[in-house]
């Protein structure tokens, strides 16, 4: 094997860390979090105020009174949160777990010594990063069986579980890029030092390179968590009864009156915002802190 192929390609050009781009934490890697976090703290109360006062405006044009609209929403709220939003969060957690584990290995595949592994990982990353999420969701939904047999017992695979697998695919591909970027941001001197101390390539990767990248991977990783959480309502199109599905059902039960649209969907908007906004703020502050340290 030629020693030119030994290190991830970019480092060959420079030994100096300052000359290497910090790919994993480059500004564009945190687009959503940067945008969310840039919002001032009053956005959430403002949204809520709009939601509460909307009925005053709507009342002028409909038979619904403000009190009736608010009490209708309040009546459904516990269900929307406990049966709906909690499922969104569960889906987002599990997706992140699967997506991260798979993404780490896919990212390692991208810097593998074997040309074949590199090619296959590259193809997978391109495929899952660039396909519309909804297409991936439908493919997974239709191709996974509704039950699987494990050691003789039949285990049903609920729709929301399939949705987790579907969402895991794009998350995996994007985490893989984060991992690859972080690995490449470590100066090649670290590889050489480890190799000259007789560390094997696998040891070097797991004991020397990855521990150094860990911190820089956290902000972009959290950014992807926020993006994916906000995408979980997509699975309502597949019939999973998460918050948006339940919202629609609740409005139907209340006679589908147009005045309900803004309060009900507004509530969903607020709850997602309230959940993702602190995450985005944390992401940005971590990004700032790690950027100074490393």
């Amino acid at each position: 094997m030629s020693d030119i192929a030994k290190f991830p390609p970019r480092e060959r050009h420079s030994d100096l860390a300052v000359l290497l781009p910090l790919s994993a934490s480059a500004p564009d890697a945190l687009g959503l979090s940067r945008w969310l976090a840039s919002m001032p703290g009053w956005v959430l109360p403002a949204l809520t105020t709009v939601l509460v006062f909307w009925p005053v405006y709507a009342m002028a044009q409909s038979t619904f009174t403000t009190e009736r609209l608010l009490s209708t929403l309040l009546k459904w709220m516990p269900l929307l949160v406990t049966k709906g939003f909690v499922l969104n969060i569960l889906i987002s957690f599990l997706t992140m777990v699967f997506g991260t584990i798979a993404g780490i290995f896919l990212g390692l595949g991208r810097v593998s010594h074997s040309r074949f592994v590199r090619l296959v990982s590259w193809l997978m990353v391109q495929l899952f990063r660039n396909s519309p999420w909804l297409v991936l969701l439908f493919v997974v939904m239709l191709s996974l069986p509704f039950e699987i047999r494990i050691a003789g017992t039949i285990v049903p695979v609920p729709d929301w579980m399939k949705a987790v697998f579907g969402l895991s695919l794009p998350v995996m591909a994007n985490i893989a890029e984060i991992v690859r970027g972080a690995i490449r941001s470590v100066p090649s001197g670290q590889w050489e030092a480890a190799e000259s101390l007789a560390f094997s390539r696998t040891q070097t990767l797991w004991q020397i390179i990855l521990p150094q990248c860990f911190k820089r991977m956290i902000p972009p990783w959290m950014n992807w968590y926020a993006i994916m959480t906000m995408a979980t309502p997509l699975v309502s199109l597949l019939g999973v009864t998460e918050i948006i599905t339940l919202t629609r059902q609740a409005m139907e039960a209340e006679g589908n009156h147009p005045s309900l649209l803004v309060p009900f969907y507004g509530f969903a908007l607020i709850i997602f915002f309230a959940y993702c906004y602190p995450i985005a703020r944390l992401t940005m502050s971590l990004e700032k802190r790690f950027a100074v340290k490393l």
């Binding site: 001197g189 050489e192 480890a194 190799e195 150094q212």
Partner: peptide, 14 residues
């Protein structure tokens, strides 16, 4: 490499 040690210009400490 266990028999041959090496020290670099840029130290390359972990």
């Amino acid at each position: 490499r266990r028999k041959v040690g090496m020290v670099f210009q840029q130290y390359n400490l972990f």
